[in-house]
């Protein structure tokens, strides 16, 4: 791996070398490294770009790393990754994509991820998107995530767009059966002319299924973010969406919540708050000796943590 790939890897996956467990590294539109274990099989798709990941039932305490790095301008990379997770598993999946592009051509990554999560399994999915570049180069992400959750499974999904992404359109869909529990934490930071769109549709089909969506947005410069959620309650279920946004400069955040209760025992809640940094927060940090600029920086850093 070259220096750029290693730097991207460090930032998106918090790793500096080949990780333990199963992994698939994809660099500049091609498979770079792949490793399966006895419990986690990674198989490249025959008919299109991407991989199938098979996690054997009862696999516990194991991890899969599937980072994607694009190190040049003008690349368009599209992959289909399917995760087949057996029953009674407890695993961590670290995905994420870093684009380094200093050319004048746009680089784009589209990841279509589908999760089939077996009964009683617990999956933690961590995904970071990052763009690095100068000039007028553009770095774009168009991820589509679909999640099918069997009885009593749980998924924690943490997606973070750290910065430097010019354009993103992220679509997520989930269907939950009995007792399934989905927790989504999405954090997006935009600046300059960046545009970000994110939409969620969650279908609570099963009894006692629940979803908790927490979205944190910071829009600086002239950037614009759009957040749309649609939670559909089809049985005795619980859904909660919390959308918090901080706007600075001329940033724009648009939040459109939709909650759709189709069953008398559905409880669906939505909270949203968008605004500039609260003056009393800045004042508090100033009384601790910080100047206004440092205070704002720390407030945003903590908000996105």
């Amino acid at each position: 791996m070259d220096k750029i790939s290693l730097e991207l890897l460090k930032q998106i996956a918090d790793i500096e070398k080949i990780p333990q467990g199963a992994y698939n590294f994809r660099i500049d539109g091609k498979k770079a490294e792949q490793h399966s274990t006895s419990e986690i099989q990674i198989v490249s798709k025959k008919d299109k770009q991407g991989i199938d990941i098979y996690v054997a039932p009862n696999t516990k305490g194991k991890s899969v790393h599937i980072p994607v790095m694009l190190t040049k301008g003008g690349l368009k990379d599209m992959v289909y990754n399917d995760f087949h997770i057996g029953e009674n598993c407890d695993i961590v999946i670290v995905a994420g994509c870093g684009i380094y592009n200093c050319s004048n051509a746009t680089s784009e990554h589209q990841g279509i991820h589908t999760f089939y999560i077996g009964k009683n399994s617990h999956v933690k999915y961590v995904e970071k998107h990052l763009g690095i570049g100068e000039n007028n180069s553009k770095r774009e992400f168009f991820p589509i995530t679909k999640v099918y959750m069997q009885q009593s499974s749980t998924m924690e999904m943490e997606t973070t767009q750290i910065g430097g992404v010019s354009n993103t359109n992220r679509k997520s869909f989930a269907k939950l059966y009995d007792n399934a529990k989905l927790i989504i934490k999405e954090k997006i930071m935009t600046d300059n002319d960046d545009v970000s769109k994110s939409s969620f549709e969650v279908q609570l089909v099963g009894k006692k299924s629940s979803v908790d969506v927490l979205s944190r947005s910071v829009a600086k410069g002239k950037s614009k973010q759009t957040f749309t959620s649609n939670i559909i309650g089809k049985s005795e279920c619980f859904g909660h969406v919390e959308c918090d946004g901080i706007i600075l400069d001329n940033g724009i955040i648009v939040s459109t919540p939709k909650i759709n209760a189709q069953n008398i025992d559905s409880t669906l809640v939505h909270e949203a708050a968008i605004g500039k940094i609260a003056q009393d927060q800045i004042t508090k940090l100033e009384t601790l000796g910080l100047n206004k600029e440092d205070a704002e920086k720390i407030i945003i850093e903590s908000f996105m943590l």
Binding site: R216, D244, A278, D280, Q281, T283, K284, L285, L288, L290, I298, I299, S302, F303, M304, L305
Partner: peptide, 14 residues
């Protein structure tokens, strides 16, 4: 004053 995301540890550090 309340802060979203700021831990007590971070505040005491500052």
């Amino acid at each position: 004053v309340t802060f979203k995301g700021m831990t007590v540890r971070r505040m005491l550090e500052i």
